[in-house]
Design a protein around this nucleic acid. Structure first.
Length: 292
DNA sequence: GCACAGGTAGATT
DNA sequence: AATCTACCTGTG
């Protein structure tokens, strides 16, 4: 039995993470296919499999045996949105006048927004409604194992939407998706009837892309914004879930405000990278920094 | 046993 | 146009 992964390589232009921001970026609810293995993380997206190991201000990576590490490094560059200057974006957030955001930014400095495959992001967040992150991850593993193509290390990719459309609702129910199974299957059918629709959605301006995503069964404002933010690189998209709603209401004293008003507040207060601010706040709330 | 969990859609007021 | 409620399943 040969080793599953090749040698560790230095990821020379890796983002500058702290241990905290590294773990929070991969395992903080943006993505659902990363597993912590001692000091390192093992993750999957598209056809890619990689192990990452944070080391004092840099990151090492290992590709599966038989996979060219150069190819893996290119995939990492896209996945971690290395063309985006998150340090500059952080500096431009209103932390100077916002002590709540300042505390979150201080603790999670180096946090990034991932650029995941658009279709997979849609799948992940269709699984997510009133589920906890460990359950969402377990569901993704089951669906990948049952319907997805094998990957170089013997694990499986998430299935394409056309495979889900052909497989029907039953395997989704079997994966414990519950009522979400119908939404996912209906979305798969919707996409199967419209070749190129998802790609056109990803390429559209944010408002139009959001309106298109809202046509999908099971996709409301929150899921649409998660797909735009974590899969479409739209840093202005500001998903409001139960956590973020509580933060905004409690920490910013917006007691009587409803969701559409909170959306307006976020856009105006946090600016063009509001979604990035949202991820700092979400992380801080989950870590117990912000009273909720 | 029961409330609650990264919501959404359809019914009811 | 707000505000309930059903929808599945796992966990504490």
């Amino acid at each position: 039995m040969p080793p599953t992964f090749g040698n560790w390589q230095v990821w020379s232009d890796a983002p500058r993470f702290t241990a905290v921001s590294f773990a929070e970026t991969l395992d903080g609810g943006q993505a659902f296919r990363w597993q912590r293995k001692g000091e390192c993380f093992e993750g999957r997206w598209g056809r890619n499999v990689v192990r990452l190991r944070p080391r004092s201000g840099q990151v090492d990576y290992a590709a599966p045996t038989g996979v060219d590490p150069v190819e893996t490094r290119l995939a990492l560059k896209t996945y971690f949105a290395c063309g985006t200057d998150f340090e500059a974006l952080t500096d431009a957030l209103p932390w100077r006048s916002d002590p709540v955001l300042a505390a979150a930014v201080h603790h999670f400095r180096g946090l990034r927004i991932l650029r995941q495959p658009f279709g997979e992001t849609l799948f992940g967040f269709l699984c997510s409604s009133t589920k906890q992150i460990p359950q969402i991850k377990a569901i993704c593993e089951t669906v990948a194992r049952e319907l997805g193509e094998p990957l170089p290390d013997g694990s499986h990719a998430l299935p394409s939407w056309s495979v889900i459309a052909d497989a029907g609702e039953a395997p989704l129910r079997a994966a414990k998706l519950g009522y979400r199974a119908r939404y996912i299957y209906q979305t798969a059918q919707f996409l199967a009837e419209r070749p190129g629709w998802l790609e056109a959605t990803e390429a559209a301006p944010t408002e139009e892309a959001r309106a298109r995503l809202l046509e999908l069964p099971g996709v409301g404002r929150k899921i649409a914004d998660c797909v735009l933010l974590f899969g479409g690189g739209r840093l202005e998209a500001f998903p409001i879930d139960t956590w973020v709603e509580k933060i905004l209401i409690r920490a910013y004293q917006l007691e009587a405000w409803k969701l559409p008003q909170l959306q307006d507040f976020a856009r105006i207060h946090f600016g063009p990278a509001a979604g990035y601010a949202q991820q700092y706040l979400f992380a801080a709330a989950r870590a117990g920094f912000i009273p909720s």
